[in-house]
Design a binder for these strands. Structure first.
Lengths: 339, 339
DNA sequence: TTGTAGGCGTTATCAG
DNA sequence: CTGATAACGCCTACAA
């Protein structure tokens, strides 16, 4: 079964390719009669335009690329969800690539997408990335580009973010309002903007409430895993037995903390209160249920795509494009771990 | 900054497009000298072939489509992971679509992918799907096609599966070996093959060990959610207070069961033992830790892609293709909920 | 209202 | 070793 082409339709109908093309696109200058004939035959033969040819002519593929550090991640898979849903609604398809937190891979993938000539790229940076060459290349080529969540302030492009500093501040303030007076922080890696911001939020909050900031109470994740959570929980309880609150960079790690405390029978929230970040699904099913900061992940996906689409359309019209940053609201979800 | 084309290189070098093309593809019939000149200039101008044109000529896009019911799902996101990793390794990109368990959406998405002329399609059926028209269309068009996990026996294509019946059988046998004598089953929806098979495995196992099969002990999920787990746990404990074991279609639902039992203080595993399916990450972090059946999700992704690639290549060589089915091993992970 | 011609950028064939 | 030419399938000025 061969693919139907305009040519075939034209030949069987004994008219020109041009007319067929016009008829299918409902041009005004085609007689109703031929239009109908073409439409009928097209339906019968199940004609669909060859997208390869259309791409070549129109120079667009109605496809965008998405690069994220990890697919298997509650937050990111929700974002993916939002992006592909919104993209589909607007006639775009999404190619997904995973950088595994490796700048090297990320570079290759950007290259792949550029060569593929996608209409735009959405990305959340790997932990090591910054304003590197491959990112500069995207900007230089004027490929529509949106960063979300893990961004770099150095990059001049549209962004979808939350106010990490404020959100972290609120989380820590929440702990304090619950009576915590010595609060540790398990932070993310040194490089990513959001782990920096959450740390700053933590620092400002304690200082604001007259708890002297102590750098020894800050523990830095390398891989941001469940295991690290357990490990740091152990260190914290050993180094500072009087800690009564912990603010953790993300729920996955916080769950590790809770797991360790369960094991050694440290009571949460009685002895130590714990708050996470991101509102992973599992946070509401573990014991005790984890308090956390809710991040509108699906929404972030939707917004990211819309910002990208905006840029795609504006560039098509040759208006020169000004990047925008969208900041979404977060809120604290109070559960058992901070009661 | 315009895109570099063969033509530009040819003109600046004063040679023909043909020669440039050959030089870049390292054909033997180009002199070393011109080859070098071309290669140098190409690098300097950062030439990359226009994929739209290449697609049109070669009739392939080096892109495949993937349709799954849910992205935000531990099992599926792991499969995605395996697929995109293996695809990338082989020079393919992956477009991901989500059917949301809706046949309607699924149909549209198949159409999108066909129109996009992807080189192949990998799919896990939505709960309502069967050998429907849109699936037939894929087969009819001889588009390379692989089903994984949620398959239909009626469809004649390559498949990657586990032996759900055997795995379920083993799970129930495990409960029995731990002393359970009255075992309920929370099954998946009626249509999907894997929920049927898991049910059959349950039935065979109880019968094999001389526990009379009782259809009243079987509860059927509609949406396969955490909430349904809680709800059915409640029903089970009310309808059959003497049930001492539950085999649940998937971990998410099983976690709901555990949550309800925690709430009303039913002791797991002392009073009732619970085993799930799929080994979701959260299963190892809740209390009590959930016993489950491990399913090699990442592997399934890898195998799915490889089967697809096999078909793509064979069809290209015009050998007529015989679908294959790959069955992967599962194994029981014993944790606290069945101690 | 319809059709001709040219081009998008690449690749394959075949002649020089 | 090199290059002219056609073709992939579609779109769009411009003619007729």
């Amino acid at each position: 079964m061969k693919e139907t082409t305009l040519k075939q339709i034209a030949e069987t109908l004994g008219i020109s390719i041009t007319t067929v093309s016009k008829a299918l696109k409902n041009y005004s200058d085609v007689s109703e009669k031929t239009k109908k004939a073409v439409l009928d035959l097209a339906r019968e033969l199940q004609y669909t335009p060859n997208s390869f040819a259309v791409n070549l002519r129109t120079k667009e593929s109605k496809t965008i690329g998405l690069i994220i550090p990890e697919v298997v991640h509650h937050f990111f898979s929700n974002v993916i969800n939002g992006i592909i849903a919104e993209a589909e609604k607007n006639g775009y398809l999404v190619i997904i690539l995973q950088s595994n937190e490796s700048v090297e891979l990320e570079k290759k993938q950007v290259e792949l997408l550029i060569n593929k000539r996608v209409d735009g790229i959405i990305m959340s940076l790997s932990n090591e990335s910054n304003d590197d060459e491959h990112i500069k290349e995207i900007i230089r080529r004027e490929i529509p580009f949106v960063l979300f969540d893990k961004i770099s302030k150095l990059i001049n492009c549209s962004k979808v973010i939350i106010n990490d500093q404020k959100a972290a501040h609120n989380a820590v303030a929440h702990l304090i309002s619950k009576g915590c007076t010595k609060i540790a922080h398990i932070r993310g890696p040194v490089n990513p903007q959001n782990s920096i911001d959450r740390f700053l939020g933590y620092k400002k909050a304690v200082e604001k409430y007259n708890i002297p900031y102590d750098s020894k109470l800050v523990y830095t994740c390398k891989n941001v895993t469940f295991e690290e959570g357990k490990e740091f929980a152990k260190q914290i309880i050993n180094d500072h037995p009087d800690v009564d609150g912990i603010f953790v960079i993300t729920d996955l790690v916080a769950v590790g903390v809770l797991a360790y405390f369960n094991e050694i029978n440290v009571k949460v929230p009685e002895q130590i209160k714990v708050i996470g970040f991101s509102n992973w699904f599992m946070s509401q099913v573990i014991t005790p249920k984890l308090s956390t900061v809710d991040q509108p992940s699906y929404e972030m996906g939707v917004e990211s795509f819309n910002l990208l689409l905006e840029e795609i359309n504006q560039r098509k019209e040759m208006v020169d494009f000004k990047p925008r940053t969208v900041e979404l609201e977060t809120n604290i979800i109070e559960r058992e771990s901070t009661l």
